[in-house]
Design a binder for these strands. Structure first.
Lengths: 154, 154
DNA sequence: TGTATGGGTTCGCTTTCTAAATCCAGACCT
DNA sequence: AGGTCTGGATTTAGAAAGCGAACCCATACA
């Protein structure tokens, strides 16, 4: 466990950092829980509400925000014999958050999981081999955490 | 871009999901910004405050929460000629969030970056090869997103 | 005509956030 | 000893967001 050297400030101020921008977009409890549900296939207002048990005002606000940010797409769906209603599906932008949420799931399994075996795990298609979040180089080979170097002004 | 099949509910309810637990711990704007700064080496109350420009009440509350949750360790440091003061450093638990925050940084670079080259990039030590967050199997070989399978109940 | 259903909005109340001021302990100076 | 500086907070009061419950609205169906 390498100690991080002391710094008075981050190398990039939060205002001009894309991590900080990303946090503005998804760094919110309800927003993250909505994305979690969406990644599992939930699409409809009442299903989100039943799952999250959050106030409907909050839900409609967050859904609107996620649509505005481009993570969700709102479009009508029509079940036969029912009137058309909106559904919210993940855009490519939203789908590309999946590795991050899987990484966070595994972090939770490791540190918050009370020693039990995780209720959800992830494997490579066609195998039973568990996978994990890590860093890779251009060739797709793992780079260990202590090998990571930060480069400013890329 | 594979469509996610419609679901009325997540396979695991949020109450018993470690992702939801993780979101409870770190799913907050200020908390994430504190962790970002901590990963860059910021340790002291006033340095966090100068960087985040958040109310000191919020900062002290969040730091306390992160210490309670085990992500930060509070211990005294002493600069010569100064009184001892607390500093907040990342525990192993906190450090292990680094891949996730780097992943989120790169997500922000890709989707929020306004087309500019990212201000921060990451390389493998001793090389100029850029690295990225990804999934690997047990042997450290990359698994592409479309190869990921979800397995319920451990 | 009425009832059910999904997708919201409106309404009050409570909690949390925010900014500014204040507090506090120890080091240093004279 | 008294005064000042400095880092690490807490207090206070107003603004914003969260919350639960109730209500609204359009359309299918009986």
């Amino acid at each position: 466990m390498t100690q991080i050297p002391l710094a008075r400030r981050s190398p990039i101020p939060p205002e001009s950092c894309n991590l900080a921008s990303a946090i503005e977009v998804v760094g919110d409890r309800w927003t993250l829980l909505i994305l979690r549900a969406a990644l599992y296939g939930v699409r409809r207002f009442d299903d989100f509400q039943a799952e999250l048990k959050c106030p409907r005002t909050v839900l409609s606000g967050r859904l609107k925000g996620l649509v505005d940010a481009g993570l969700l797409v709102k479009r009508p769906y029509k079940a036969p014999g029912k009137r058309a209603r909106p559904e919210y599906t993940l855009s490519a932008m939203g789908l590309s958050l999946r590795p991050i949420l899987i990484g966070l799931t595994q972090w939770g399994d490791a540190w918050l999981g009370a020693g039990e075996s995780p209720p959800i795990s992830f494997t490579k298609a066609g195998t039973k081999v568990a996978i994990r979040a890590a860093f890779v180089d251009a060739d797709g080979r793992e780079v260990r955490p202590d090998q990571i170097r930060t480069v400013i002004r890329g």
